[in-house]
Design a protein around this nucleic acid. Structure first.
Lengths: 119, 119
DNA sequence: TTGGCTACTCCGCGTTACAGAGTAGCATCG
DNA sequence: CGATGCTACTCTGTAACGCGGAGTAGCCAA
């Protein structure tokens, strides 16, 4: 199943996605679940998102602000902290490097070219 | 540690890398370890690569050909099978979709734009 | 009462990466 | 002779994550 691979490939990615969503402004769990759900590749359930949020918060990448919602329990708005932004930047940087590394991988002849004479 | 995240993000990726390396022609374990090692982002040890190779082979994505190396034990050349190529294509496709999805995520205003009138 | 909004939690499974070390064989260089 | 490099593995154990499924709970509107 390619699905199994996709699940594996998601590891870490969702964390990145949450941070990315939050980089455009604060949001709350329910909304984040919905936002990700709108993109098929990132559809997730609450039991995936809330732990991520909790983790991120515990690592001080997110801060929290409660606000009455008018309907139901308080909305808990999450937003990036300073180090959260740094983290996201690091991730973006890493992803760029990975992209580059992959294209390198694709274009590497066979071994390193120190014994090629193909001109 | 961003390193921890990087490790997580690698899940699945290494499998993809191995397949990609092999898409340029057959190779053997030792060489693959070296090839990946040349790219800092994908540096791995044998205890990571060999299990991947074994897994991939067991799933019929790779086939094997032994050849005396002249020095040491036989070289075990791995190469993509037909379904291995299909799998790699699927992965590539998925990765493209992910890339797209991420850029969507980045450019999504705040919620879905079904209440925007920007034309 | 049902259903949507809101926030969680707990249990448990499956998979992967990876470090570290070990086993083993052969060839070559010093 | 011994070290080093090439070659192929294996085993053990750890940590983290995604995720399904279900449960708890509170509140409002139709």
């Amino acid at each position: 199943m390619i699905d199994a691979w996709i699940t594996q490939h998601r590891k870490g990615l969702l964390e990145y996605c949450v941070l990315t969503v939050l980089s455009r402004g604060e949001s709350y769990g329910y909304e984040i679940v919905a936002a990700l759900g709108r993109i098929a590749e990132f559809a997730v359930s609450e039991s995936t998102v809330y732990p991520i949020l909790a983790r991120l918060r515990q690592e001080k990448f997110l801060k929290v602000r409660d606000e009455p919602s008018g309907q139901g329990p308080m909305r808990r708005y999450f937003s990036l902290t300073a180090i959260g932004k740094v983290r996201l930047a690091e991730m973006n940087h890493h992803l760029k490097k990975i992209e580059l590394a992959i294209s390198q991988l694709k274009s590497t002849p066979r071994k390193d070219p120190d014994n090629e004479h193909t001109h």
